[in-house]
Amino acid sequence: MKKIIKIKRTAEKGRQFLEPFLYEGDGNETVIDFLEEINSRSEIVNADGKPSQPISFNCSCKEKKCGACAMVIDGKPRLACTVHMRELKENALIEPLSKFPVIRDLSVDRTIMYNGQETLKAWPEAPQEPMDTDAVRCLMCGLCLEVCPNYIPGSSFTGGAGVAGAARGMDSTDAAHTKDVKKEYMKHFFRDCGQSLSCVRICPMNIPLDKLQARLAKKK
């Protein structure tokens, strides 16, 4: 199987451009395997035969356990380790997430998500019950914010990851803390959520964010 795949790269001063690379294989490699293969070439040459530079991207587990490799593949936000090359069309596009500042190529800065967790006070005080099993599985990959029609880049809206965080924070026996978390949750999620439920559909861990929201709504 041979395909040309276009990758959105970063040039001087942050200017973005598309660079074509040739994929050759049986289609069973993942997008991450393909990116690694390009970087391991002793001389990196693009599909036009021009010399190129290694591609910057994030990756760790390659098994859908860490959330590092979120990017937009063929128009859909996905974890790149879960997408096989056979699924990609000729001339398919691999891009960085669009709602986060691009650091370089396919690497983005998701710091805002971590700040959001801090704003929500997303930790339990004096927990006596175990935290919600679903809420502790959020990978902080950013796909929920990427697809959310209500998230404006740079805003304090915390998206699906915020729902999971607030659910962890509200599993507290400390009533004052629970109240605090609820207040921040209302302000940084509930107030601006349009209930599109796009985060529920995209979450790679299948966290039932709608059910968590329903549970949070009952908390006082």
């Binding site: 760790s60 860490c66 590092a68 998701r110 990978l139």
Partner: peptide, 11 residues
């Protein structure tokens, strides 16, 4: 190098 969510311990 990366946030804790990316560490091998998660695996």
């Amino acid at each position: 190098e990366s946030p804790s969510e990316r560490a091998q311990s998660n695996m």
